[in-house]
Simulated assay, not measured.
Amino acid sequence: MSAMKSSGQFFTIGLVTAWYSSNIGVLLLNKYLLSNYGFKYPIFLTMCHMTACSLLSYIAIAWMKMVPMQTIRSRVQFMKISALSLIFCTSVVSGNISLRYLPVSFNQAIGATTPFFTAVFAYLMTFKREAWLTYVTLIPVVTGVIIASGGEPSFHLFGFIICIGATAARALKSVLQGILLSSEGEKLNSMNLLLYMAPIAVVFLLPATLVMEENVVGITLALARDDSRIIWLLLFNSALAYFVNLTNFLVTKHTSALTLQVLGNAKGAVAVVISILIFRNPVSVTGMLGYALTVFGVILYSEAKKRSK
C-alpha cells in the first residue's frame, strides 16, 4: 500500500511541477516575445494560443478520451459559453498587452488581487455576502498592490490599467461561470468548457487581429524568413498555453480546491523570482514588500473563507 501511496505522491508532485513549469513558462515566453523579442502582437498571440487549445482539446477529448465528451444542450447554454469566452479573451488579451509595458514581477503582483475582484463581483451579481472577516483580509491584498505600484521602478500607467482590467475580467469569468453553468444539465468540466470556449474565442479574436494588428501574418512570415525561431517559439508557446489548462484541470482533480489556491499563491511568488532572475528588471524593496503584503493578504483570505464555510 505504501508503494501505491508514494507513487501517488510522486504523480501529484509531477503534476504540480508540470503545472508550475507550463504556467510560468507561458508567462515568461509571452513576456520575451512581446517585449524583449519585439513581437508586438498580443491579440495574434492570444489567437495562436486559442487555436492550439481548440485543436489539442479536441485531440485530448475526442481521440484520447481523457475525459468524457460533454455536449452543448441548448442555444441558451451556447450563448452563456460564448459570453464566458468573450470575457476570457478580454482577460488573456489584456494580460498579454500589459506584458508589453510591465515586468512579469509587477504583472503577477497585480494578478494576485484576483480574490478582491472575485469578492466584489460575487457581491454585486449574486448578493452573496462573505463573513466580514473575509472582507477585512482583502485590505492587505489591495494595500500591497498600491505599495508595490508606488515602489515599482518600471511602473507604466497604461500597462497598469490594462493589467487591472485583465485581473478583473478573470475574476468576472470565474463568478459568471459559477452562475451561468451552475444547473446540473449545464455543468461542464473545465476541459470540455475549454473545448467549446477556445474555438469561439478564435472567432472573436480573428476580426480583432485583422483590424487592430493588420498584416500580422505577413509580418510573422517575414520575421520567420530572417529567424525561423519565431515560428518554433509561437508553436511551443501555444502548445504550452493548452498545457496550462490541462495541468490545471488535473491538479484540481487530484488535489483539493484549497490546495490549488495555496499552490497558486506560491506559483505567483515563484514566477516573480524567476522573472527577475531572467529579465533582470529593477525591483525596489518597497515593491517587494508590497507584493509580500498582497500574497500574505491572499493567504489570510483563503483561511477566512475556509473558516466561514
Rank of each mutant, 00 (worst) to 15 (best):
126 T>G: 00
126 T>D: 06
126 T>E: 07
127 F>N: 08
127 F>P: 00
127 F>G: 07
128 K>H: 12
129 R>K: 12
133 L>W: 07
135 Y>K: 10
138 L>Q: 08
140 P>H: 03
141 V>T: 10
141 V>F: 03
142 V>A: 00
142 V>W: 02
146 I>F: 15
148 A>F: 01
148 A>H: 02
148 A>V: 03
148 A>R: 00
149 S>D: 10
151 G>L: 05
151 G>V: 05
152 E>R: 08
152 E>F: 05
153 P>I: 09
154 S>R: 08
157 L>D: 02
160 F>H: 15
160 F>A: 04
163 C>S: 13
164 I>G: 02
167 T>L: 06
168 A>S: 09
169 A>L: 00
171 A>L: 00
174 S>F: 01
175 V>T: 14
177 Q>D: 11
177 Q>A: 10
177 Q>H: 06
179 I>G: 04
179 I>F: 01
180 L>R: 14
181 L>P: 08
182 S>H: 12
182 S>L: 06
183 S>C: 10
185 G>I: 13
186 E>C: 12
187 K>E: 15
187 K>I: 13
190 S>K: 10
191 M>P: 15
191 M>R: 11
191 M>H: 13
193 L>C: 03
194 L>F: 12
197 M>Y: 08
200 I>P: 15
201 A>T: 08
201 A>W: 06
203 V>R: 14
204 F>H: 11
205 L>G: 01
206 L>S: 09
208 A>Q: 03
209 T>V: 10
